[in-house]
Amino acid sequence: MGVMDQVELPKPIRYVFNWGRKYSLWCFNFGLACCAIEFIAASTSRHDFIRHGVIPFAHGPRQADLLVVSGTLTDKMAPSVKRLYEEMPEPKYVISFGSCANCGGPYWDSYSVTKGVDQVIPVDVYVPGCPPRPEALLDGIIALQGMIQNESLKERIAGRRLDPITLGADAPLALEN
């Protein structure tokens, strides 16, 4: 980082770098509802997404590359998702898992439900289902990996969404005084 978002890397190096990002997606599960159970099923021995290099060892957002939002996002929870996303270091990817995360799902007309995670953070892959099968998540991950292998990091960073609302920017820091 720092250099890679300024300079377009030569093709062989870009290939190797993209390959590294593709097979090392440390994953942070933002489980909000029943879809989280399917996500967990995808990590268990029957489906085992560590095969594809999706490693669920990222205990905190700082180490994560991939955020999987699975479940109903409420307006109350939305700032937390936004903040979590901002705490992740670039390059970061987001999978919206299930109908609720895609656009509110069965609760789209509820007063308290956010109509999709993409209202708050940019989403790379939408996985449909209610809840989707674990294999559907694997399919979404494979689609994401195909995207990563062909992308240019410079373009990705340049085209990233910069919303004016940044949570916690004005918050006082207790340790500073």
């Binding site: 390959w19 590294g20 095969r51 290099g53 270091p89 670039e90």
Partner: peptide, 27 residues
């Protein structure tokens, strides 16, 4: 489970991929 399979033959390059990824991450 199987453990890593896709990165390199039998997933042997999984930690190499991790390393390549870590040097690209924002500091």
């Amino acid at each position: 489970r199987r453990g890593p399979v896709e990165a390199g033959p039998f997933g042997t390059l999984q930690l190499v991929a991790d390393g390549i990824k870590f040097i690209q991450k924002e500091d």
